[in-house]
Amino acid sequence: MTLMTKLYGAAAALAMTAGAAVAEPALIFDLGGKFDKSFNEAAFNGAVRWAEETGESFREIELQSEAQREQALRRFAENGNNPIVMTGFAFGNVLSEVAPDYPDTKFAIIDMVVDSPNVRSVVFNEHEGSYLVGMMAAMASESGTVGFIGGMDIPLIRKFACGYAQGVKAVNPDATVVSNMTGTTPAAWNDPVKGSELTKAQISQGADVVYAAAGGTGVGVLQTAADENILSIGVDSNQNYLHPGQVLTSMMKRVDNAVYDAMKAGTDLETGINVMGIANGGIGYALDEHNESLVSAEMKAAVDEASAKIASGELAVHDYMSDDSCPALSF
């Protein structure tokens, strides 16, 4: 191809994005789509918050196929979008190939570690937040049995389950934790019907608080828990509002903050591994007008104390992914 046609193509692309800033950031959603009420949506909200505060704009794409992962990364990088933020561990493989080709572009990947000088890998200490909501679940439970419903059975979700079980056992060593995974494929992130069935099964085993760490599947878990008059715990975003008075709390994984921070840093984005935990506000539990009647003062005091201990390093919650095993729960 001649230089002229290349210039022409570039000019056309520029014409379409007229008025865009030179280093417009880009956000790539995973196959789940951006409105999943959970993980991807949190990322979208972070980007929107950045755009509203700065008055600038960002590019975004929802993927349609596997081949588009690499394509979207390369096209955004060639277009000069910087930084490029992507949600989900599934980008890990592709990004480790693409990133070295564009040394001047900064990338941020959430939930995965990619070792490249121009990549910021954002990982969350989900086990810490899950520990806190596990404590709350054990204190709220009357039957002494609590449930966990995960999405796809991957180490990342086992990390949630393991932290949760540790929190439960810390409050009540005799408590039973029932744990189920929705499936083994990405379809498990968006199967509210199965989430609902698993909830019913756990209720029949005596569970009266269930924690859903399952993306869109969690919507079904929370719904069924509300219908059956037991308590549920949301994940990623603050889901307390979905069923006011029936969602005990939500384990907040501030994906929105991670995206917001990355976009705010712009081209000066600090690369390397960025661990978001309780200490730096990346992880927490949700307390608002929808659940304040459910959270007793005693509960709040205990959780806040544990939270402070985790932040200071006094209390260490075991991370399932560090050694693929869990002291409090067997899978």
Partner: peptide, 17 residues
């Protein structure tokens, strides 16, 4: 072409399908 539309316009992916 559909992928390009998704990248550079606000046409949602469902409409490209």
């Amino acid at each position: 072409g559909g992928a390009e539309l998704a990248l550079w316009t606000n046409i949602p992916r469902e409409l490209i399908v």
